[in-house]
Write a protein that binds this DNA or RNA. Structure first.
Lengths: 105, 105
DNA sequence: GGTTCATTATATAGATTGATATATTACTTT
DNA sequence: AAAGTAATATATCAATCTATATAATGAACC
């Protein structure tokens, strides 16, 4: 955290960071990504695990796909999702540390 | 990242994390927090630094105050803001690493 | 063709944003 | 201490964006 960025650079970075924040700023999507960060899962598995109605789920997954936060793989009728490595994963890790591990602190 | 949380625990954590994400999911607020993470600043300084119209700025600062992401200190006519230590700072740091330092990677 | 798994379309309800105008707080000057 | 001024905050409201339910569509398999 040493070198200072120009306002332009900050704006550009903030814009990109902000798009990621928007993706995580929704409970269902956040939970989805948490699940998918741990292991690859099919839509049906996610539906069962999180109790989100299927079309809603699919819509959220579409958003995540369009923002390239997840990758997909089809196996027959099943569509498997997983988190793509990148900034999303780093932030998810930070959130996990802050909100899931901090019980005993 | 070892122990698995119950769905209920996940939901609760996701809810709290999500509120933070919402706060960061806005370019102006994100820039504000980045500035304020570096040093305490008055509203006027922020206005000058970021070029955000004053009422808009004040509105965003109010939101950040209500979510307790910033602390304030009045000095005469001036109101100074700073980022409160906590999850927000951890996430800001992660964002900085991902989006501001990663040029040469 | 029928069934299962998944995606897309459509429409409505709800939340967020930002501009303009107004109010408040504290300082200054007379 | 009254009036003026600078700094900040709040109110209001139209415009935009986001979310979700229902219905329809597509893809793969039997």
């Amino acid at each position: 955290m040493a070198h200072t960025l120009s306002l332009e650079q900050m704006h550009a970075a903030a814009g990109r960071a902000c798009r990621l924040m928007k993706m995580l700023a929704h409970p269902d999507r956040l939970m989805l990504l948490c699940q998918l960060a741990q292991r690859e899962m099919s839509v049906g598995e996610l539906e069962a695990a999180l109790g989100i109605p299927q079309p809603t789920l699919s819509q959220q997954l579409t958003v995540l796909r369009e923002e390239q936060l997840v990758d997909t793989r089809r196996d027959g009728k099943y569509m498997y999702y997983r988190v793509r490595r990148g900034p999303a994963l780093a932030v998810l890790k930070a959130l996990y540390t802050q909100f899931c591990e901090r019980k005993k602190l």
